[in-house]
Simulated scan of single mutants.
Amino acid sequence: MLTQLGIFLRKLRLDCGEIMKEMATKLDVSSSFLSAVENGKKKMPESWYDTIVNLYNLDKEKQDELMTAIEESQKSLEINLEDLSKEKKRLAFSFARELENMNKEEVDKMKIFFKKDGE
């Protein structure tokens, strides 16, 4: 089953008149790997976001659409805790545990708290 990311990539390919092999070549992967990413069987390499934005000259709206598709297609998020203090690691685990229990108001407050300047 296609993920949101897969739908975005397929549409992008079709809009550019490309077949899967052409996009896979541009991304320096096999067609089967690209297909697995589209179908949610493989995780998209982090470098693809910038690569796709640059290769296909995506405007701000399409960049946002791509990021949303990536976020909606992810089943998990990997965070490197290697260089964090014990205190920061515990905070990360606590936050992850509480995420499921947060109501909309709490989520909105966290979004404001973490929002970067200019966004």
Rank of each mutant, 00 (worst) to 15 (best):
L2F: 05
Q4F: 10
Q4N: 15
L5M: 10
G6V: 03
G6K: 00
G6Q: 05
G6A: 07
I7Y: 06
I7L: 07
F8G: 05
R10G: 00
K11G: 08
R13K: 09
L14F: 00
C16T: 04
C16Y: 05
G17L: 08
E18L: 15
K21C: 01
E22F: 03
E22N: 03
E22T: 06
A24K: 02
A24R: 04
T25F: 06
K26N: 10
K26W: 00
L27P: 02
V29E: 00
S31T: 06
S32K: 03
L34R: 04
V37P: 01
N39P: 05
G40Q: 01
K42R: 15
K42G: 01
K42E: 04
K43E: 14
K43L: 12
M44N: 04
P45L: 00
P45T: 02
P45D: 10
E46C: 09
S47D: 15
S47A: 14
W48R: 07
D50H: 09
D50K: 12
V53M: 03
L55Y: 04
Y56G: 03
L58K: 03
L58E: 07
L58W: 03
D59P: 06
D59E: 11
D59R: 01
D59M: 00
K60N: 13
E61K: 14
E61V: 07
E61R: 11
K62Q: 06
E65R: 05
E65S: 08
M67F: 10
A69R: 05
I70C: 01
E71P: 01
E71A: 15
E71D: 15
E72L: 06
E72Y: 08
S73Q: 04
Q74R: 11
S76R: 13
S76D: 15
L77F: 09
E78A: 14
I79H: 11
I79L: 15
N80P: 09
D83E: 13
D83M: 11
D83K: 11
K86Q: 13
R90W: 07
R90S: 14
L91K: 07
A92P: 10
A92T: 14
F93R: 12
F93S: 12
F93Y: 10
S94N: 13
A96L: 12
A96F: 10
A96H: 11
A96C: 12
E98F: 12
L99W: 14
L99K: 09
E100T: 11
E100Y: 12
E100M: 04
M102T: 12
M102A: 14
N103F: 09
K104D: 15
E105N: 11
E106D: 14
V107K: 14
V107N: 10
D108G: 01
K111V: 10
I112D: 11
I112V: 12
F113S: 07
F114S: 07
F114T: 13
F114H: 00
F114K: 00
K115I: 00
K116A: 13
G118I: 08
